[in-house]
Amino acid sequence: MDFTLKIWRQEDANAQGSMKEYKVTDISAETSFLEMLDVLNQNLIEKGEDVISFDNDCREGVCGTCSLYINGEAHGPKKLVTTCQLYMRSFKDGQTIYVEPFRANSFPVVKDLVVDRSAFERIQQAGGYVSFNAGGAPDANAIPIAKEDAADAFDAAECIGCGACVATCKNSSAMLFVSAKVSQFAYLPQGRVEATERVLNMVNQMDNEGFGNCTNTGACEVECPKGISLENIARLNREFLKANVVPK
């Protein structure tokens, strides 16, 4: 297969960026999207040009590192997969493909397609944990947890922190991401103890980081590679309301 690629190039955070055109030829359908970019980069090296920077690591869809906006969609056209799990068979031979970074004010570009998502870190640090020191934990089976609750907590905990939800949202809202963490703990007895503080601190930090408001368009859920459900946002809202009425 042959493709025309229009790729965002930007020297560093302060530089002006622009779309540049490249061609790749003879790509097999079994090649992953990132492997196709590897091929392109090898071609660039042969010509002595600077390679296209893009973030990636596990290439198994779970580390959340890859973050490409492909033909106007976060992680490309295929649903429920990350960019690294996208294969060229999802494209048509001869197609023109636009590749951009995940864009949001809170995710400044580092170089080319690489962005800085450290805002997510600070939200997690604000409350995404159970306060508990290593050692001295009670027997793991001491607190039974209903199978469905554990499964629901797991579904929320599957968020990989990629930021596709933010990149997709017209307001650059981080609600889906934050709600996933809040929900995971809300389903579990271990998490209930600090539920009030957690939701207030995390939401507060989210606002400080400059993420936009959620206006319930549901676009995030559609593009989320892990199928994190909008119900989590509803739950976050309930937790947030509850936290605000409970006197501290």
């Binding site: 508990f132 290593a134 009670p138 209903a146 554990a150 499964a151 907590a153 579990l188 271990q190 998490g191």
Partner: peptide
Amino acid sequence: IDQCVAQGVPFAR
């Protein structure tokens, strides 16, 4: 395992 459960790791049940 005790430690991880206390942290809220959602192991299968």
